[in-house]
């Protein structure tokens, strides 16, 4: 009981961000992403709590922002107010690849169109952040959609309610006997 009383005010994310989701990315079951969009249109890409990396006490072997031989998200540099020079990403642009100790590799995608502002380098040295605080300190990247696309970039995404529906359907399917 006490826990529910602890805080009447919503969290930082509740106050300033809208949660958007993309589930089963690229047809891969349960590879759900969460996009936190700030009221100023800035987007923070995170793993959704249902992503396989966050299930069953996985642990992380490596995180790689080098998405191809010629392209590393770590080389992204922006300058000025308009974030000139940042890599422009489309919805299915990979941000990084995460390998778990069980050998499985997962690709994290941009999910929205926009300019890459920064990637979270802290998770390279402390991958446990990704597992412990996936929606805050364990974020993947920050993306700034174009001004004129700030509303439309989230059009193909699920809102929190729709996401929860997907999750509960998924749970029902799994619990149904084959």
């Amino acid at each position: 009981m006490e826990i529910s009383e602890q805080k009447e005010a919503p969290s930082v994310i509740d106050r300033y961000y809208t949660r958007w989701y993309r589930t089963d990315l690229k047809g891969n079951a349960c590879e759900d992403h969460c996009i936190l969009q700030h009221s100023n249109r800035i987007c923070v890409i995170t793993l959704a709590e249902t992503h396989p990396i966050l299930q069953n006490g996985q642990s992380i072997k490596s995180i790689n922002y080098q998405i191809s031989a010629g392209c590393s998200r770590l080389n992204n540099k922006v300058s000025g107010k308009s974030k000139r020079g940042g890599q422009f990403l489309t919805e299915y642009a990979p941000l990084c690849r995460i390998t778990c100790t069980d050998g499985k590799e997962y690709t994290i995608f941009s999910c929205i169109r926009g300019r890459l502002v920064e990637v979270n380098e802290d998770i390279l040295t402390r991958p446990e952040l990704l597992l412990e605080k996936p929606s805050t300190e364990g974020y993947i990247a920050v993306i700034l959609p174009k001004f004129e696309e700030s509303k439309s970039v989230t059009e193909g995404l699920l809102n929190r309610e729709q996401y929860e529906e997907v999750i509960s359907k998924r749970a029902n399917q799994q619990s149904e006997p084959c």
């Binding site: 100023n40 800035i42 922006v78």
Partner: peptide
């Protein structure tokens, strides 16, 4: 801060 990043340089 993310809350002002849209109008200030990183």
């Amino acid at each position: 801060p993310l809350r002002v990043l849209h109008r200030r340089p990183l």
